[in-house]
């Protein structure tokens, strides 16, 4: 939760400090440029400045952050149901992959909201498996 929260803060911080701290803002945009194309027509805007990542990447990071909350409050039976089915990770990526491929092949051009939604749909399940892996790491090795 901390890592995804920090990433989200940086995404919004870059345009917020553009006017007051342009050097730091440029640094943040540069930092996220390795993970995102940052094309302005595919980004949400804060005022007249684009966020540091595109709408799909924003959905991925926001979905993971939201997923950590859901993981905490969902009943354990539902958590275990998801964890027992890691193929959900692949199915969740389906809409995102189809939309991205369609955009590259110029079949259709989806809206920012649709891209945001496909990113959230995929990444909101990831914390379940993330915490399962961390649980395994924290358990003593019985072998």
């Amino acid at each position: 939760m901390l890592i995804s929260g920090l990433i989200l803060i940086g995404i919004f911080l870059a345009p917020m400090v553009r006017e007051f701290q342009p050097a730091f803002s440029n640094f943040l945009y540069n930092l996220y440029s390795s993970f995102c194309h940052q094309q302005p027509d595919r980004c949400y805007y804060l005022g007249d400045q684009a966020l540091a990542v595109c709408s799909r990447c924003l959905g991925i990071y926001a979905g993971f952050f939201l997923g950590t909350f859901f993981y905490t409050f969902l009943p354990s039976s539902l958590r275990n149901w998801v964890i027992d089915r890691p193929v959900i990770i692949l199915f969740g990526a389906g809409p995102m992959i189809v939309d991205a491929a369609a955009g590259i092949l110029k079949i259709w051009a989806s809206s920012l909201t649709f891209r945001l939604a496909t990113g959230i749909i995929w990444s909101i399940f990831l914390p379940f498996f993330w915490f399962q892996a961390l649980n395994q790491l924290c358990q003593p090795d019985k072998s």
């Binding site: 540069n30 930092l31 390795s34 993970f35 993971f64 890691p86 990770i89 498996f129 993330w130």
Partner: peptide
């Protein structure tokens, strides 16, 4: 930049590891 890139790349790589496990 190097430190924060390591953090974000590690986060993305870990997510990729989960995908790879599935």
């Amino acid at each position: 930049n190097l430190l924060l890139s390591c953090l974000i790349f590690a986060f993305l790589g870990a997510l990729g590891g989960l995908i790879g496990y599935s």
